[in-house]
Design a protein around this nucleic acid. Structure first.
Length: 367
DNA sequence: AATGGGACCAACCGCTCGGAA
DNA sequence: TTTCCGAGCGGTTGGTCCCAT
């Protein structure tokens, strides 16, 4: 037996909204609010619409301060970066872009940004093949102008954030430092909003890990402390945040079989790398790029798989996270664009910590 | 001018989650 | 503790517009 329908399907209108319907819905909500019950709303207004449809119409179109179309380059970067970081969690991405709806961003990604990305990737590969000889020679002579190699998808210049110092993976993660690298990340309210949305409890995990990983906690605490004042919503523990920062998509998140995780210590689940799957478009990017297993050198490095920037990213010496494949490594690349968004730096910082956890577990003698 | 195909976007569908009873 | 129901989310579909042929 299936689920009961949320409304009488036979008596509801479907399809595009008329201006009259829009006006009815808008004026009612502006006067009375939603009343916390979308299902009952259409009857109150006299609309022959499903409550869900009303909700969608309001959120995606009628709500004040909604922006449509005309995504800026900065917004492109934010969307891309968040997509790389957290996957297709459009509502979270939308929360970082004022005036944008998840539906809008989702459509924009599916229709334009993804193609832009793949088109650029292919172009870069062609360019790389053409220019291999010259570039290699330049590299050998250490005369390489990074901007000539950069395959950043949106502009031809090395982004300023690439030059910012990031902690070497061999050092303990300094979350306050990571946070400071990202403009807006010192905005505790927005951090909190985002993390609460993601589902964070930043109190208990500290105590939680304190026993097992005493050398990590001070660094976590440095970021965590300013948040404490206003954080009161208990939700998922820190490992959820860490995983959230590295999981590719909701559909994959709901399917544990996508992950080959290793349970570590006190419920710390880390990505093992192998067996991890990616969103199809990133899978395509990866499969089309034999140089880097993460397939993202078009974002972060040159055509040879070298990171152009000295950011302590994964090299043969420093990489410990995910050992070369998976979202874990993406997070550890360390040169995710420095966004107005509030989350990346934090996630990145968290991820550095995750890498360090794994390092410590694998190489306890280095502790 | 006709038409076929692609791009774009609004809206729907079905699922999960969380709160209330 | 269990069940039910509404909210919210991401994936998908279908309609419209535009452009190339």
């Amino acid at each position: 037996m299936g689920r009961a329908p949320c409304c009488d399907k036979a008596n509801v209108k479907k399809g595009p909204w008329s201006p009259e319907e829009d006006a009815k819905l808008k004026s009612y909500i502006e006067k009375h609010g939603t009343g916390g019950n979308w299902i009952a709303l259409p009857q109150k207004i006299g609309l022959k619409r499903c409550g869900k449809s009303c909700r969608l119409r309001w959120l995606n179109y009628l709500r004040p301060n909604i922006k449509h179309g005309g995504f800026s380059e900065e917004e492109d970067k934010i969307i891309l970066s968040l997509y790389v970081s957290i996957g297709s969690r459009w509502s979270i991405i939308a929360a970082q872009l004022p005036g944008r709806t998840d539906n809008d961003i989702k459509n924009y990604w599916n229709t334009r940004l993804k193609k832009k990305l793949l088109g650029k990737q292919r172009k870069d590969q062609q360019h790389a093949r053409k220019g291999n000889t010259l570039i290699k020679q330049q590299e050998d002579n250490r005369l390489v102008d990074p901007s000539s190699l950069n395959s950043n998808i949106f502009n031809a210049q090395i982004p300023y954030w690439s030059y910012l110092p990031t902690p070497n993976a061999n050092s303990l993660p300094d979350y306050s430092c990571q946070a400071a690298l990202v403009p807006g990340l010192n905005n505790h309210t927005s951090i909190r909003k985002l993390l609460m949305k993601v589902g964070g409890n930043f109190d208990s995990p500290i105590n939680h890990y304190n026993n097992a990983y005493p050398n990590i906690i001070p660094q976590i605490d440095s970021l965590h402390q300013p948040l404490n004042d206003s954080l009161s919503v208990p939700s998922l523990p820190m490992e959820s945040i860490i995983n959230t920062a590295t999981l590719p998509s909701t559909s994959q998140m709901t399917n544990p079989s996508h992950y080959n995780t290793a349970e570590v210590g006190v419920g710390m689940s880390i990505l093992d790398g192998e067996g991890t799957t990616f969103p199809p478009e990133l899978e395509e990017l990866m499969s089309s790029n034999p140089r880097r297993e993460d397939g993202l050198d078009f974002l972060y490095g040159d055509h040879y798989g070298n990171n152009l920037v000295n950011h302590g990213g994964p090299t043969s010496e420093t990489m410990t996270c995910g050992e070369g494949s998976g979202w874990g490594e993406m997070g550890s690349l360390g040169s995710i664009p420095n966004l107005d968004s509030d989350c990346l730096g934090f996630e990145e910082g968290i991820h550095e910590g995750e890498c360090q956890f794994q390092r410590n577990l694998r190489y306890p003698s280095q502790l």
